[in-house]
Design a binder for these strands. Structure first.
Lengths: 347, 347
DNA sequence: CATTTCTACTGTATCGTTACAGATTGCATT
DNA sequence: AATGCAATCTGTAACGATACAGTAGAAATG
C-alpha cells in the first residue's frame, strides 16, 4: 500500500535500458516521485539520509531531468538565445563569442541556441520571436544602439539579457563592452608618439553606440596630443572593396593623412590594401592602429599597431551576466568594460 | 454538454493576452482540442471546412505549438545540434557554417543548438550526450576521420546526422564535402603552369579523411604535370608561429620549393610570413596556392592563388541533408561534393 | 490523555500536445 | 426497420516534472 503510486506504473524496465526518469528512481528507492523530485533539489522537508540515497541512485543511473518535462511544467527552458547578425562577419568574431559563452554554459544546464537574422531586415524580429514563444530564459544581443529598441522591449517584458555594447538613454541593463574610447584615445597617442599628426579615423556606423565612444576618444586624443583629423567618409560596415577604394583616393590626395585609426580588424585589411594601392607604405609614409578580435593583422603587416579586443572573454562575461540576471542579480552589478591590450607588435 | 471538455478549463483569457494554445483555439471554434490538433496537421478525418476554420483562427491568434508540449509527448525536439570544435578556428569558418545552416532552418520549426567541445578532449562526449539525452532530432559534425567513431555511434543509434567531410570505411551516411582531391590536383596544375616544379604541401592532420584526398590529388598532380614534392613536416593544425618558423627554415634551405600548396586559409597567412621572413617573395621566387573559406588571402597578398571553399553552402547542404534524413530519405541520396572555384585573382 | 506541532513523505492535478479508442450522425444497404 | 459504414468529431490518458495540499506518525505541549 505504501507504493500504491508507483504500483502498476513502473512495472517496466525489464530489458531495455531506457532513459531513467523520476519514476525509475522512485521505483528503485521505494519512494514517491514527489519525494525524489524534492530530494534532488535539496528541499528542506526531506530527510538527510533519504536525500543521500536518492542522490546515489540518481548518479548511478545517470539520471538527467527531462528538459521537456521541466520546461512544460515550470516554463524554464534552460536555453540562452544568442542573437547574431548574419551579414558581414568576415572574421571569426562571432565564433569566438560563441565559444566564450559555451565555456561558461558548459558547467550549467543551459544550452545555447543561435537565433540569426539579417541586420538589414528587422532586427526586432528575433527578439520578438523569443519573447512571444518564451523560447529562452535569457538573451544575448550585439550591435547595440544608444536607444536600442531591443533593449527597451526585453526590459519591458522582463526577459533577462546581456548586451555586447552599451546603450545611452538612461537604460540600465547588464552589458559587456570594450572600452572603445580608451582604444581610440590610446591609438592617437601611439600615432603621435611616432610623429604622426594628421590622422584619419575609420569609424563604425554612426547608429551604433560605440561610434560615439570612438569619436570621443579620438577627439580628446587629437586634442591631448596635438593632432588633427583628416576626414574619411566611409565606415567599418562598408564593403571591403569600397573601403579600399576610398582609402586609396584619400592616400593619393594632397592632404593624405600620416596616421589611421581603424575600428575593426577586417576593415584594416582593406585599409591596408588602399594604402598600398596608393603606393604608400606603413611604417614609412604613415602608421596605422587597428583594433582586432583575432590576432591576425600582424601576420599580414607587422607594421600595423594592434589593440586586442578579447571577444571570447566578452562571451564569457555576457554568459555569466545573463545567468546572474536570471538568478535575480541586479543589472547594475552585471556591467563590465574591458580595456584594450597592446601586445608587443612584431612577433 | 458538447463542450464538457473545455468547460471550466478555458474560462480564461478575459484580459491578459496570454500565449494561445490548442485549448484557446478549441474554445474559440467550439471544437475539441483533439480536433483542433488534428485539423492543424491536416489529418484525413477532419472536415475540409473545419480545417479551414481552425487554420484561420490559429493564424489570427498567431498560434505556435508549444515546443515543450510537443517534445514531451512525441519526443520530437525540433532541434538540430551542431557539434563544433572549440579549438583552432582562427578565421570565421564555423560562423559561416552556422549561417548557412540557419538559412535553411529559418523556414522550418528547427532550432540550432551549438554543442561545443575541445577536440583535444574526448570528441565522443558531445555526441554521447545528445544521444543519451535525446536532445536533438539531428546532428551535424565536422573534422571527420576515415573510420569515425562518431559516425559509427550515430548510425548505430539511428540518429539522423550529416557530416562535413567523408568517411572511408564502408560507412554510408549523409555528408557534404569539398573536393580536396580536385583542389590539390588543380593547385599543382596552377603552379606548374607558372613554371614551378618543386612543390611543398602544407597538409591537414593525417587522421582526418581529407588528408588522403589532398595527398592523392597532390600526388597525381605531381605525376600528371611532372613536378616533384619538397617535404614539409608540419600540418595545418599546428600553431601559426610553428608553421611560419618551419616554412622559413625550409625556404632558406638549399632545396627550397618554388611552389607551395596550402590546405587552409589561416595557415596560408603563416606560410606567407615564413616565406617573407626568409627573404623570398611570392610571384618572384615561388608561387603559393591556397584554399580559403573566407575571401581574405588576396587582400593580404594578391599573388596568392586562391581556391574558394564555400562553407556557407556546406552549411546549407548539411542542414538540408539532416532534415531530409529525419524525414526518412535514404542516406545515399544525401551526399554531395562541391568543387573548388578559382576566382580571378587580383581584385 | 487529548491536542498541537513537527518531520518526512505522498497523491493529485497540471503544463500543451498527441495517440488511441471511442462516440455521434447521416445514409446507404439489406 | 434493422444494420452497416463512412465521415467527423471527442474524451481520456500519457509523456516527465513540479506546485500544492495533504497525511501519517512521532514528539512536544497543556
Amino acid at each position: 500500500m505504501e507504493n500504491k503510486g508507483n504500483f502498476g506504473q513502473t512495472a517496466s524496465a525489464p530489458t531495455a535500458r531506457e532513459r531513467p526518469t523520476l519514476k525509475t528512481i522512485a521505483f528503485m528507492t521505494g519512494l514517491g516521485v514527489t519525494t525524489v523530485s524534492r530530494a534532488l533539489k535539496d528541499a528542506p522537508d526531506i530527510g538527510a539520509e533519504t536525500k543521500e540515497r536518492v542522490r546515489m541512485v540518481a548518479r548511478q543511473l545517470g539520471y538527467q531531468p527531462n528538459r521537456a518535462g521541466v520546461r512544460l511544467r515550470t516554463g524554464k527552458t534552460n536555453v540562452i538565445a544568442l542573437v547574431l547578425s548574419i551579414d558581414e562577419e568576415i572574421m571569426g568574431f562571432s565564433s569566438q563569442m560563441v565559444f566564450g559563452i559555451s565555456e561558461v554554459l558548459s558547467g550549467t544546464p543551459y544550452h545555447i541556441v543561435i537565433t540569426p537574422h539579417s541586420h538589414s531586415k528587422d532586427p526586432m524580429q528575433p527578439v520578438r520571436y523569443i519573447l512571444d514563444t518564451g523560447s529562452a530564459d535569457g538573451v544575448i544581443i550585439s550591435r547595440i544602439e544608444p536607444d536600442d529598441p531591443r533593449v527597451r522591449l526585453l526590459t519591458e517584458r522582463g526577459m533577462p539579457f546581456a548586451t555586447h555594447g552599451r546603450t545611452d538613454a538612461g537604460l540600465t541593463h547588464p552589458f559587456h563592452d570594450f572600452d572603445n574610447e580608451a582604444f581610440a584615445h590610446q591609438a592617437v597617442e601611439k600615432l603621435v608618439e611616432r610623429g604622426r599628426r594628421r590622422i584619419a579615423l575609420l569609424q563604425p556606423p554612426s547608429k551604433l553606440t560605440y561610434y560615439a565612444h570612438i569619436r570621443i576618444g579620438f577627439q580628446t586624443g587629437l586634442h591631448d596630443y596635438g593632432a588633427e583629423e583628416v576626414p574619411l567618409r566611409v565606415n567599418t560596415d562598408a564593403p571591403l572593396a569600397d573601403i579600399r577604394d576610398i582609402v586609396e583616393v584619400m592616400m593619393r590626395s594632397a592632404n593624405a593623412p600620416d596616421g589611421i585609426v581603424c575600428s575593426a580588424g577586417s576593415a584594416a585589411i582593406a585599409v591596408n590594401a588602399g594604402i598600398e594601392a596608393a603606393g604608400k607604405a606603413l611604417g614609412r609614409d604613415l602608421d596605422m592602429v587597428s583594433k582586432q578580435s583575432v590576432p591576425i593583422l600582424n601576420w599580414i603587416r607587422p607594421e600595423i599597431i594592434t589593440a586586442q579586443e578579447d571577444v571570447r572573454q566578452a562571451g564569457r562575461e555576457m554568459a555569466k551576466a545573463v545567468i546572474a540576471r536570471i538568478d535575480g542579480v541586479e543589472p547594475e552589478l552585471l556591467q563590465s568594460v574591458s580595456q584594450p591590450t597592446w601586445p608587443e607588435s612584431g612577433r
